[in-house]
Design a protein around this nucleic acid. Structure first.
Lengths: 163, 163
DNA sequence: AACAACTTGTAAGGTCCCCTGACGAGTCCA
DNA sequence: TGGACTCGTCAGGGGACCTTACAAGTTGTT
């Protein structure tokens, strides 16, 4: 182990990813709770993160969030109850509804993306901007392969969201 | 993104970390379930991941897992019930008990570390061994700062990690 | 030696977040 | 027009955490 150049596989990669993830979320939540959007929690992110102009169908939220439609529905119910989102009928399909952000929802989204960008920037100062950019690039590549359902569709790409 | 030097902060870093994490866990669970240790779930990892020779106090498990002692206790109860772990009195403190792995527990730990190492190796083939090593190095550095409570104490470092 | 302050683990109860199964309403296709 | 499929929802359940409270044991102070 010691004095070896061999790849050291402890702690396991999943653990490292989780520690980094948890650190971001803890910081994010801490700041979010101080804001006027303190009632938003990480679960709500699946909506804000994937939102686009015309709105999202529940099925899309579920797919991109890698969860069931029922779970996605619960999240949306909650956002609607709190005034961050609303359901409007989808003109293209009378079965479907489009989940859209309210004005307050958009403000929260913008604020959330802002906070996350700040955290990433701070990490850049702490660990080296280029290295963090490299981390991001690597993760984007991995995500494109391992979680294609969640990646932006380029032109569709989103604006501003918390997680 | 293209033609821009500006840092592209969508999707947010937490999302990317989560996608990568979920991908590993999904693969890990898929393979673990096929093994004779199919009743182990990700939550149990906080024990296996941190285990050392002499055993772990519940308080340590909780600290390193970033959870309450009650939650850690629940996990340990479950592992004990399934025959992976046992509690032995701590000779140094009569209040405390040391959580130790049974023989079966050690086999499961070895197998788990092996599978995770395999996954990381496969990622190396898929994305470039050096780049994945770089990812790990960056994450280790981040974890050492952001989650010091969870990082190995050097000499104490882990056990049955394969090769 | 004795007592306050603290730590170790447990008990009880609750919350959040996600799941499975079943279903009515609407759409697509042969 | 009927069958197969998809959209969202209802009902029910469980895993993995949490908070509060406490008894047993240890440590530090006087």
């Amino acid at each position: 182990m010691i004095g070896s150049k061999e790849h050291q596989q402890y702690p396991p990669l999943n653990g490292l990813l989780e520690y980094a993830f948890d650190a971001i979320i803890a910081e994010f939540r801490g700041e979010m709770e101080k804001s006027e959007f303190g009632d938003l929690r990480p679960t709500h992110g699946c909506v804000f993160r994937n939102m686009r102009k015309r709105g999202l169908r529940l099925t899309e939220i579920a797919e991109r969030g890698n969860m069931t439609k029922q779970s996605a529905g619960e999240v949306v119910d909650d956002l609607v109850a709190r005034g961050y989102a609303e359901r409007v009928p989808d003109p293209d399909d009378r079965r479907a509804k489009l989940v859209c952000l309210t004005e307050r929802g958009e403000e929260a989204q913008t604020h959330g993306f802002f906070l996350l960008a700040e955290i990433e920037k701070r990490w850049g100062e702490r660990y080296g901007a280029e290295r963090v950019a490299g981390l991001r690039a690597m993760l984007e590549e991995i995500a494109a392969v391992e979680a294609p359902f969640a990646m932006p569709v380029a032109a569709e790409a989103a604006p501003a969201a918390p997680r």
